[in-house]
Amino acid sequence: MSWFRKLVPSKIRTVGGSKRNVPEGLWVKCDKCSAVLYRSELDRNFDVCPKCSHHMRIGARRRLELFLDEGSQQEIGTGLEPVDILKFKDSKKYRDRLNSAQKTTGEKDALVVMRGSVEGVPLVAAAFDFGFMGGSMGSVVGERFVRGINSCLEEKVPLICFSASGGARMQEALFSLMQMAKTSAALTRLSAAGQPYISVLTDPTMGGVSASFAMLGDINIAEPRALIGFAGPRVIEQTVRETLPEGFQRSEFLLDHGAIDMIVDRREMREVVASLLAMLTGQSAPAA
């Protein structure tokens, strides 16, 4: 590199190794428009870029904190933990992957479920943590989802689920696949009990999660520009050997093709969901 360094004018040279005096994490760069954003401003804006409205991925707990009324939360299925029944080992052991995911996210598994309320409307809300092994669905995710539904049935309240998942968890093999059947079957009881289910698809919702409860909402909502589909774009490209159309498998594409009811900005999600639920459950308009 030394010959190159000599060519570069001194004013644009940076001195290697010396750290600038900026605290870590104070500034964030938008993945979409590359604008440099002030962290606390972004926090106040629901992790949506104030410049280009790009919806950044957020964790399960943050999602529920943004969505539910303050102080109303009560978590469901906290004692459930994943087990490595198959002693699955690829380049890494499943147990080690679990441990590292639990450490980085602080969650036991990829779905967090809470009882709570939104603008005073009581409900059960579930949210995926994409940071936990790509939000993949294994036995604990399936069981927590079902317990969320059981809680809806007991309390006679609606269900909201925020999906963000790559699909079924390979390390739990066929047990994961069966979670698709389990979660979808549980929704038949919710439907029979006349309680609404709103599915919110966020970036990304693919594979086994998309092909089960995420597409089964009485109302399907998506966040703007979220990637949503069954097969991943790369798999499709390899299969059909053609370039995928612009915007393929994005929320707007799904809306055009009739797969979802609406696209809602994260900053308006609470208001829209509360309004919809109040109508579906025969309550007067929520006090906004």
Binding site: A185, F213, M215, L216, I228, F230, I236, P245
Partner: peptide
């Protein structure tokens, strides 16, 4: 299930999900 453009446009995910729900 077939991973194709048309299949996605016509709702491959929804078709599978609907079957799981109704078969139950």
């Amino acid at each position: 299930a077939y991973p194709g453009i048309g299949a996605e446009e016509r709702g491959q995910s929804e078709a599978i999900a609907r079957n799981l729900f109704e078969m139950a």
